[in-house]
């Protein structure tokens, strides 16, 4: 029993990573109505920027906030420069552009900062705060940061004009344009915000997985899983989904014989199961299409 509790708490700590990235995936989904396959790479690149700023002698929190600002601008620029020209291309072409962005950002990071693994500092310390090696201070800090970010996003999307306009622009671009919302600008803003949230996620994750160009590849997958399990239309659901995937992944290692080596496959089978039973995720709204 004690072991199970341990695994659950350990799962929550890794789940916080997935929750962070799931949140940024849902954000961009709200803003542009697509899953962004390059999301993890954007977060990784932002993390490198933070690392570089710290190498140049900037204090942690200074680098943290400046990186968020830079990431916001970069996300905005990517939308304007890369996606606006092909706005009317078929969805499949968009996915190819995501793949292209993935390749470009990944290799640029390797080109600029080399492929060696770099350690990344944490502002929270590494002491255990709960039991022996159960939850590190960094894990707790990460959970807290995810919670704070979720709170702000909730308020933003529910009570601010810009937040409401962004939701409208993504849910129904034509009607939104008719009531005077600048849909293109909102899309770019959504990209900027998603990049900024990704930057926070990357900076939080880097002390755990170390900094290298491929650090986000598997995490992104779990993030997708979390976002989909929770429902792509619900930021709170995405955070819940992220934590759930972390816990499930850890508990899967209890399955006799193949649990440990098939962790990933079990988590993925669960996604397919959840999707089959609830195609819009656990907390997602059902989108009804008119004929």
């Amino acid at each position: 029993m004690e072991q199970v509790v341990q695994q659950i708490i350990g799962g929550l700590a890794t789940g916080a990573i997935y929750a962070c990235i799931a949140l940024s995936i849902v954000m961009i989904y709200q803003a542009i109505d697509h899953l962004n396959f390059a999301q993890g790479e954007m977060a990784m690149f932002s993390t490198y920027i933070a690392w570089q700023l710290m190498q140049w002698g900037m204090p942690y929190w200074g680098a943290f906030f400046i990186t968020i600002a830079i990431s916001f601008v970069l996300g905005y620029v990517i939308e304007r420069a890369v996606f606006k020209p092909v706005h009317n291309a078929p969805v499949l072409s968009h996915i190819v552009i995501f793949i292209a962005l993935f390749a470009i950002i990944n290799s640029m990071a390797g080109f600029i900062w080399e492929f060696t693994i770099k350690p990344f500092p944490t502002p929270f310390g590494t002491k255990s705060v709960l039991g022996e090696g159960l939850l590190s201070a960094h894990g707790a800090g990460m959970i807290a940061v995810t919670g704070i970010m979720l709170g702000f996003l909730y308020l933003f999307f529910r009570y601010t004009r810009v937040g409401l306009a962004m939701r409208a622009a993504s849910a129904n671009p034509d009607s939104a344009r008719l009531v005077g919302i600048r849909v293109g600008f909102m899309n770019a803003l959504g990209w900027g915000m998603a990049a900024a949230i990704g930057a926070v996620a990357g900076i939080m994750i880097a002390p755990v997985v170390f900094l290298e160009p491929n650090m986000m590849v598997t995490i992104l997958l779990y993030g997708f899983a979390g976002a989909v399990v929770g429902g792509l239309t619900s930021p709170g659901g995405a955070v819940f989904g992220g934590f759930a995937v972390g816990v499930i992944e850890n508990l899967a290692s209890f399955v006799p014989h193949f649990g440990a080596e098939m962790k990933l496959s079990i988590a993925l089978a669960l996604i397919i199961l959840v999707l089959t039973l609830k195609p819009n995720g656990l907390f997602g709204r059902k989108i009804v299409n008119r004929v």
């Binding site: 890369v82 092909v86 291309a89 072409s93 190819v96 552009i97 793949i99 292209a100 962005l101 993935f102 390749a103 470009i104 990944n106 290799s107 640029m108 390797g110 080109f111 080399e114 492929f115």
Partner: peptide
Amino acid sequence: SAKGLTGTVYGVFLILLI
């Protein structure tokens, strides 16, 4: 690093193509 650039060139190819 030159190897690192391969992905960039490939990605730019893809985007131009689209």
